[in-house]
Amino acid sequence: NTIFEAAMKQCGVSIAYNIEELIDLMAAFTCPCLPKGNKLGILAESGGGAVAGADSAFEFGLDIPVLSKARQQELTDRLKGVIPPFSAPKNPIDLVWPPMENRVKILVDCAEILLKEVDSLIIMDYAVFNSDYVKGMQDLQNRVRKPVFLAPCFPAKRQAELAKLTLKGVPSFTIPERAVKAMATAVKYSQYVQSIK
C-alpha cells in the first residue's frame, strides 16, 4: 500500500479510498479552475458549519488565514446594516442569516472580498437555489479564477440543486468535511501540476 500510494503521488494521481470519495473528487474536478495554494476561505451562514469546515481544513493541511485589517474593514462596511454587528469578519466569516432580499448579491460580494486573500473558498449557506444563485456563483468563479465549492445547509432536500450546480462547474457537497477534503485533494493536484512545469 505504501509503494502504491508513493507511486500515485509521484504521478500526480489522486486516490479515492471509497466510492463516496470517488464521487466527491469527480465533483471537485468539474471546477474549471484549480486552487493555486492552500489558503482556504470559509463563508458561512452557520457557525457550526464553519467550525466543522475549519477543523477539517486543519486535518487535511489547508490553511485558513486571518484576513488583513483592510479586508476585514471592507467586509464590515459591506455588511453594515445588513446583518447583526456581532459577526466576526476574520475567516471563517459567519454571515448570521443575512436577509432573503439580495441574498445572492450579499454572498457574492462577501465571497469576492474574501477571495482577494485566499486561494479557494467554501460557502455554506441557506440560499435559495434559483437561476440567479447558479449564475452568481458561476460568474464569480469565472471572474476571480479561483475555485468556489458549496456545502449548503439542508442538503438532503437539495440533491437535485447540488447536482445542477456541480454540472455548472460549481462543485457542491452534502457536508462541509467532504467539501474540504475534496478541496485539499485539488490543492495537491494543483501543486503537482505546478511542480512539473
Partner: peptide, 26 residues
Amino acid sequence: GLKYASDFLELAKRATRKKPVIVWKG
C-alpha cells in the same frame, strides 16, 4: 507485473499533465 506497473505509471504521468486522474482504491 513490473512491466505492467511501469506502463501504468508512464500512462498516468502523461495523463495527469493534462487532466486530473483519480484512482478508486476499492
